[in-house]
Structure formats: C-alpha cells, structure tokens
Design a protein around this nucleic acid. Sequence first.
DNA 1: CATGAATGAGTGTTCATTCAT
DNA 2: AATGAATGAACACTCATTCAT
Lengths: 188, 188, 188, 188
Amino acid sequence: MSRPRSDEKRTAILEAATRIIVLQGLGAPTAGIAKEAGVANGSLFTYFETKTELFNHLYLAIKSEMAAAILNNYPAGAESRDEFFHVWRNWMDWALANPHKRKALAQLGVSDEIAAETRMAGHTMMMPIVEMLERARARGAMQTAPKGFVVALMNSVAEATIDFMAQDPEHAQKHSALGFDALWRMLS
Amino acid sequence: MSRPRSDEKRTAILEAATRIIVLQGLGAPTAGIAKEAGVANGSLFTYFETKTELFNHLYLAIKSEMAAAILNNYPAGAESRDEFFHVWRNWMDWALANPHKRKALAQLGVSDEIAAETRMAGHTMMMPIVEMLERARARGAMQTAPKGFVVALMNSVAEATIDFMAQDPEHAQKHSALGFDALWRMLS
Amino acid sequence: MSRPRSDEKRTAILEAATRIIVLQGLGAPTAGIAKEAGVANGSLFTYFETKTELFNHLYLAIKSEMAAAILNNYPAGAESRDEFFHVWRNWMDWALANPHKRKALAQLGVSDEIAAETRMAGHTMMMPIVEMLERARARGAMQTAPKGFVVALMNSVAEATIDFMAQDPEHAQKHSALGFDALWRMLS
Amino acid sequence: MSRPRSDEKRTAILEAATRIIVLQGLGAPTAGIAKEAGVANGSLFTYFETKTELFNHLYLAIKSEMAAAILNNYPAGAESRDEFFHVWRNWMDWALANPHKRKALAQLGVSDEIAAETRMAGHTMMMPIVEMLERARARGAMQTAPKGFVVALMNSVAEATIDFMAQDPEHAQKHSALGFDALWRMLS
DNA sequence: CATGAATGAGTGTTCATTCAT
DNA sequence: AATGAATGAACACTCATTCAT
C-alpha cells in the first residue's frame, strides 16, 4: 500500500555509521551519518528511534557478523589445536578484512551507550567460541581459572595480535602465528 | 607560559576530572569538573587552555604516577622472574588501589583527544618496564617477535588480569598469580 | 474542490481532533490525530489540506452544532424571558453534554490559526440568538449600548456559568439559574 | 568578583517575551525572544531555566503588576460602590495602557504550560479584590452564590468590557461605565 | 588571578507535508 | 483513494570558551 521500509536504507545507515564513527568518533552528528548514508536527516529516525538505539543495533550487527565469520566452516571433531587454529585464523582474517568494523566495534564496546542487554546478546553470539576455548584449556595450566578470566585473556591476546597485524600487514601471517602460539602456550 | 599560582587548584582540577570522567565519561561538561574541583567554571581555563589540553595532561599525570608506582623499589639485579614479578605485583597493587585512575586512563587512552605526542611521552615513562620485559623474553619463544608486539601482549594480559581482579577482589591474589604465570608461560 | 469519498472518515478525523486537542492542546501532532481517527498519517491531508484548515473546519463544525443545539425547538412568539430562558437552557445543556467539544472550541477560539472569515462565519450561525438578545434588551438599561458589547457580555456570562456548572455538576441547575438571572438583571 | 546577573537583562527578556508572544503566540522560538531582548540565544537560559519557566515567571510578573495597579490608591472605608468603582477604573486603565501585557497574559492564562501553583500564586495577588467583591455582593441577589462563581462573573464581565473598550477606544469611558453598571446590577 | 555571566555554534529529535507504491 | 516512508526545516537547550568585573 505504501512505500515499504527499505532494508537497503537500513543497511546503508548502519554502514554509514560505521564509517563515520571511525572517522569522527561516537560524538559524530546524526546528520552526518544520514548524509553519508544518502538519506534525509529525519529518515534515520524512522529506522532507529534514537542515536543510542542505532549504536546498539550497530554493535550487535557487527558482533554477530564477526561471530559468524569466526565460526565459518567450523571443523567439528578435528584435533583441539587445529580446531582452535581454524577459529583463530577466521578471526584474524575477518578483522583484517574489516578494519572499519573492528574499529567501530571497539569504540562502541567502550561506550556507555551500549546497554547491558546488548552486550549480553553479543556474548551469546560468541558462545560456541567460548565453549571451544573451554575444551582447549581443559587439561592445561588454566583448568582451574574462572571461565571469564580465560575468555578475557583470549580476547585481549587476539585484540593485541590484530592491532599488530593491522599496523604491520606485511608480516601479518607471522604475527598471527606468534599470537596463536603465545595464547596456546598460555593455555597449555 | 607562566605558571598559574596555585598548584593545589591544578591538582584539584585533575583529581576532579578523574572522578567525573569515571562517572560521566569524557563528554562530561567542563563546568561539572570545575564544580567538583571547587573552582569557578572559568578558572579551569586558566590552568588548562582547553578541555583537550586538560585531558592530555591528565593522561600523562596518571600514566606517570602509574609508572612510578610500578617501578617502586625495583630490585635491580635480582633473578629475572622475581624481578618481573615484583613489577607485576606493583602494577596490580597500584591498579587495585586506584580504580578511578585506572578507569579514567582507560577512557582517555581510547579517546582520539589524546595526541600522538602525549601517548609517546606516556610510553617513555614505561621504558624501564619495557626493558625489563626485553630481558625476560630474551631466551624464550618470543625472542624473534617484534618488541612492540610483546609489549602489547604484556599490556593486554595485565589489563585483563586487573579487570578480573577488580570484579572479584576476594580472589585477587589468585588471579594475579594466574595472570602472571600465564604471561610468563607466553614468554618462555 | 472535489469531495473526497468517505464522509465517515472526514467525521472521524474531526472527532479525533476534538479529543486530541482536549488532551494535548493545539500543538498535538497531526500524526496523533490521524491515529486516533484510525486513518493513516497522510490520509488526513486528503481531507484537509493543512492542519490549519482542519482546525478552521473543526471550529466551524463545533460552532454550528452548538448554534443548532441552542436554537432547537425555538419557541417563537413566547414571552421574551421564557424565550430567552429556553435558549439559555439549550445552551447549558449542550455545553454540559459536550464538554470535549466545548473545550476544543475554547482552545480554537483563542488560537490565531482561526481565520477572521471563519470567526465571521461562526458569528453568522449565532445570529438568531443575537437577534433574540436584541429584543430582550430593547427596553432595559443596556438599550443604548452597542450591540457587540451586549453580545460579548452574554457570551462571557454564559461561559463563566458553564465553567462553574462543569466543575460542580451536582448543583448545575442552580448555577444555570443563577447565571441566567444575573444576565437578565444585567439586561433589565 | 564577576559580572553580576543583570536585572535589566532579566526585565528585557520578560518584556521581549511579552511583545513576541503578542505577535507570534506562545510557539515563538526562544531565539526570537532573545534577539528581541538584545541578548544571546543562550543567555535567556541563564535567567530562565526553560521556556516554560520563563512563561510562568512572565505570567506572574504581569499578573502581579496588574493586581498592584488595580489596588493602587485603594480608598479603604469608602462607600461600597465607590470603592468598587475605583478598583474597576484602575483595572480598565491598566488594561488600556498595557494592551500587550493583557494580550500576553490572556495567551499565557489559556496555555497548559502555566503550572497550577503559578495560577494559585496569581490568584493570591488578586485576593484583596476578591474580598472587596465579597463585601459588595453581601446583600444582593448573589449572596448565596458560591464565591468562585461570582469571581468568575466579575472577571468575565471585566474582560468583555476591556475587549470592547480596546476595540472602540473613543468611547472607552462610556463602555467602562456600562460594564460597571451591568456588573453592579448583577450583584445587586 | 578568580569569578560566573555572556556568547553562539552545534545537536538530537520532532513534525507538517509530500510522494512512491 | 489510502498508506506510511521520506523529507528537511525548525527548535529548545547545552557547553566550551571568552570576558567584564
């Protein structure tokens, strides 16, 4: 009956927000995001009721895309280390291929605009990875450590590795392997 | 640049800024910081020309306090692992004793208000620690890795450990040991 | 101007506007009026070109309904006072039975959105009442006063009376009589 | 120590608001009011926290000025009718001399921005007048009517009279007398 | 130097109206 | 004709910074 709400436009807004956040931070005017997305100022608010809601949706969208990429072609049943390395490689690949999304996600993750529930939902998407990590550390030195602590360590090693790969892309593979080995040593 | 009279007021502003940033983020109004510091709104700008300058000074102030704390009573000449653990313990102690400063520092570190030079100066203060790290990894698995990478890993493991200690203070010592061991395993 | 199809919808919009104006004032969004009327946002504008036009139509619609109610069963030829009291009673009855319409009319009457012509048309509908008033004051103390002045006094006494009846409905009849007597004394 | 808040500016804003409200209604932008007052956009908000607060203050300011004017040189102890007429004349004089204030007050009085407490405070200022009215009607036909009703009638007759005086200023005195006589007849 | 009022650019959001479907 | 998405001007209010006192 009427012009249907366009998924294209919604996506355009999310992508524009990603780009703008990288360039200008979370304080960037919504007007700028709308312009970058090629829609009118007010249209942004037919797709997302507030700026905060837009940010929460963007956070989840990127996080779930990332989780899906990480879990792509997951080799269930392989040896623990190989299984883990497959995931690690997917992780690094996605991060390198999507530097904007990664940067935006980092900014969003640090912001207090992101609701607790949104973060929770994001964690849920990473669950399979966390379970894999659980199996990997089951017999090593960290078997008694709290789960959350191991997850935090994995995340921070991954982030550090990615940072370094991104700023020295020529030796990306080498850094990836170094990071993974370091993590594996930590868990062993 | 002539120094304004009262060092007390300068300090009060920096401390107020720390508290306010923790509560309200970097977007907090300067008026609020001034009020918390017990000075007038406009006085803030006789001590720091702009909000950005205030933030850069605060970043450096906290960072150097932290570095000094970490290096306190540095046992030059001790065994590598003990030497390192002393530093690690100082690091964790300072972080637990100064949660506000740590949180503010985290926010500042992520912000794009902090100039490259400020970050560099911050790194400089950490130099002795980095050198110690260099000695520690000299014969281990990471001996060929670029220096910056190892530093990044150390930082991120430390941060993850602190996060976990802070949210579960009862087992702080245990987490500290776990974190240190994990890091040491990484370097070995 | 071709009449849009459905008189029902037109009426629904006018009635919705009445209710919404009472609740939210003239600043109420057209979207809200449309929703209350059960039509789409944009449909409102096929029935009334602008919000202002809607308001002008609503003003006239209520005013003419009121005038018709007041003149209902007009007892032509009766004694002056009885004739007048019949009108007065109709007036009060309508106002009490239609508090929303009265409130909306009050708001509209005060607004500068209502065009001079609309007001004039409204006055025209009250003409028979005014003529009756003219006969009633023909021999009293107000016989030399300008017509408009007497009309204004009648209106304001009526409004005051209605206000009071509405906020104290138990003694409505008493207030009605008091108001009428007061008005009659004024005219005598 | 610092530039003191200026009563002149506060007054300028209130007067500007009066003028702008008459011309453009209550929907007028605060920016316009500030400009008319010769102050910056934001300065308006150092004197009045919100637009609504400005309107409430303006309402009270005008109302109390009006009450003071009405009670000016109040001839305590005079004959009831003379006493009342003195008040009535003051009322009419003030209204004619301050048409803008009267119009603005009318708009404000009708608006739902004006808080109940503000209205109450306004009524308080009119108290002495109401008491005088009470004495005036003590032995007349309206002696049994509720106080509020009589007050409402007085107000509405006064308003109607003023309206008519304003739109036909040449015969202002005549209308004033007619209105007063009508009111007096009502009370007798 | 201290104070806090003054400034005015900047921002998220609303909403009457238009228009594609 | 009906729908509701699209548009963009408008607006109250904030806030870093300046400046009169």
